[in-house]
Computed example of a mutant assay.
Amino acid sequence: MSKLLLSIAGVLGLLAGLLSCGDGKPPLDNPSRGEIVVAADESFQPLVTQLTSAYSGIYPDAHFKVVFRPEQEAINMMLRDSARLVFATRILNSNERAILDQRKIKGATEKIATDGVALIINMANTDSLITMAELQTIFDGKTTQWGQLKGGNQNSPITLVFDNNNSSNLEFVLKTFNVKDVKRLRIFTTRSNREVIDFVRKNPSAIGFIGVNWISDGDEPLSVELAKDLRVMGVSSMVNPTKRDDYFQPFQEDLGMQRYPLRRPVYILSRETHPGLGGGLINYIARDAGSLIIGKLGLWPRIPYDRVINLTK
């Protein structure tokens, strides 16, 4: 069915391109050729890079200029027509939707996966389990030292490390714990998820907050290298967990089974107005083999890819 959808979209795109040539305008892109700008929060860099590269591998005439920006900036790029698609953790709000409505652009929103914000700590820090209640006290400013936590093994202050002042990681965590004022918190921001990882490696008192796809692809050498010498914290929704099994990490099964508390959706937002390259990529990701890449990166695809196996005697 997914291949049929792509084929139909390709035919429609080709017809649209031929029609546009007749009135002196440049041909429109279609699902198999053209060039568009894709914007995404930097926390999704491994995911977006692999998905767009795989699609271009199938269609060599399909080209994606991928731009990584903080989530709000990426969405703003799409609203002002500087990007065709956005990978984001939320849908458009009413004010943003109104901008497209004013221009009579219907657009599209497609949920493609469930992601998780991973909490990483230095290998020297053996306190790798934390509850949502404990995190709440940290973001309330009541808990400031590792020694105040149930399993705390050091007396140093807790440093919270994020990739950017306006990143989806920071926005998601602040919203989750209802933080209105960050001035009283010991928060340090870098310029990327990779720099968060480097910071945590050098600072045993830090907790880093990163997109899990940066460290969850066991087949990707960079992902394996980045995950070295780090601990991924287990997080529990229970107030008083009694055993290790009460804590969960942001990896595939626990995301899919909704056991990991700090999980979030991944959407593709589109402003496309014709059957174009953006729609082709969305179909590939949401309804075709793109879900295999999502699964390979440790996220939970919204629609698993159906693999047919023929058994013969």
Rank of each mutant, 00 (worst) to 15 (best):
G107Q: 06
R194Q: 14
E253D: 13
Q102H: 12
S7E: 13
P31G: 06
D219K: 11
L226T: 03
P46M: 04
R103H: 05
D181H: 07
L79K: 09
L79N: 07
V224C: 08
K296Q: 14
L255T: 01
V232W: 00
D29Y: 11
L14T: 12
S192G: 09
N240R: 09
L129T: 07
S128Y: 14
V38S: 02
L292E: 14
D229T: 10
D61V: 10
G279R: 10
T49E: 12
N178D: 13
K142E: 15
A124E: 11
Q45V: 06
K313M: 11
K111I: 11
L160S: 01
G17Y: 15
I120P: 04
V86C: 06
S192H: 07
I309A: 08
L92I: 04
L226W: 13
E220K: 15
R186Q: 14
G298E: 02
L119I: 02
V173S: 00
K150I: 06
D245F: 11
V224H: 05
G276V: 02
P26C: 08
L226D: 07
V67P: 04
L5T: 11
I112E: 07
K175R: 09
I268T: 07
F177W: 01
R184P: 12
K106M: 13
M132S: 00
P301R: 08
V37S: 04
A227N: 13
G298V: 03
N155S: 10
R201H: 15
F44Y: 14
E195R: 15
L51Y: 10
Y247S: 01
S20Q: 15
P60F: 01
F64G: 10
A62K: 05
F177C: 04
R80L: 08
L47Y: 04
P304N: 09
Q249N: 07
V232G: 00
D288M: 03
R271M: 06
L311A: 12
D198R: 11
P31L: 05
N30G: 15
I268P: 05
D127C: 09
T109I: 12
L281M: 04
T126N: 12
L277H: 03
I187F: 01
K296T: 11
G211P: 00
D115W: 03
L269Q: 07
L119M: 05
A113G: 11
A40T: 04
R84T: 13
A83W: 03
Y284S: 05
V117D: 00
E225A: 14
D140V: 01
P204K: 04
D181P: 01
S94H: 07
E71G: 05
K3T: 09
V161N: 03
R302V: 15
K25I: 08
I309C: 07
R287L: 10
K296F: 08
K25A: 14
E73T: 12
R80C: 07
Q252G: 11
A88S: 09
K3P: 12
N310L: 15
L222P: 05
I91L: 13
G152T: 04
A206W: 02
V196T: 08
V200Y: 09
L85P: 06
L28E: 15
A113W: 02
P261W: 00
N213I: 01
F177P: 02
N93A: 04
N76W: 12
S223A: 09
R191S: 12
R231Q: 14
G208V: 00
S167D: 04
I99V: 12
F162W: 03
E272G: 06
M77A: 09
